[in-house]
Amino acid sequence: MTGRRVRRALFAAVVALIVGHSLWPFLWQVLTSLKAPDEIFAIPPTLLPERPSLASYAKVFTLRPFVRYVLNSLLVAVGTTLLPLGLGAPAAYAVARLRARGGELLLRAGLVGALLPPIVFVLPLYEGIRALGLLNHPLALIVPYTALNLPLTLWMLTSFFRQLPSELEEAARIDGFSRVGVLRHIILPLAAPALATAAILVAIFSWNEFLLALTFMTADQWRTVPVGMAMLSGVTEFEVPWDQISAAVVVTTLPVVLLVLGLQRRIIAGLTAGGIKG
């Protein structure tokens, strides 16, 4: 019996190790951000804040354009979240149910395209955006983000639609629904969980993206959070405002952490269910 108990304790310890490993860099930012400014620059660093203070958080919003960066990111994230769903849902339905010609090809080719590192697209897209005069316009990010997310959305929704019993649709058709009506009134409500999962992943992607945002938003007032924060620096290397930066890191990562923790079941089920087929 003790052998089993030891094994269980060992297992618990390993699980704790995994959780600790996954969270410590984030937690360290939290701890740093709660320290008083002079304590942040203590040598050697203190582990826990000796005099916890929210001063860094008060100051982060005085980091001149930080709020603006957050708003820009939100704007792009919302735009990007809606579009792939709007384009992806009918297309996925066409692939899954209508067996549209070329559907499978689109699915596969799209996944290959979205897999490529963004550096491949950056110059040609930059040229296109420049030609359209869309530099420093949210659409300069929303459109590419939509395209980069569409394949994954398409793939997730297609495999979900395939699992839905087709009798439902047939019954609805007999009741006089048009095909669009079926999609709108029968399929989409059923697909809400899958749509939500896709939306969360897309929102996280767009909140996180760096390279395109760095290149397509050249004006400071249009920078998104990751780029804006990467640009923050002090007058010299020794004046980097780490107190405010750590608070800013927490402010920009906390929403993602809460989202993942709150919707964990949906995200993990959405990504692992149905099997990822190579």
């Binding site: 704007l75 919302v78 735009g79 809606l82 316009h137 659409l139």
Partner: peptide, 15 residues
């Protein structure tokens, strides 16, 4: 509430 506000911002922002 956020969505319409942000969309308005989006449409409103000419370069």
């Amino acid at each position: 509430l956020l969505v319409p506000i942000l969309l308005a911002l989006l449409l409103g922002c000419s370069r």
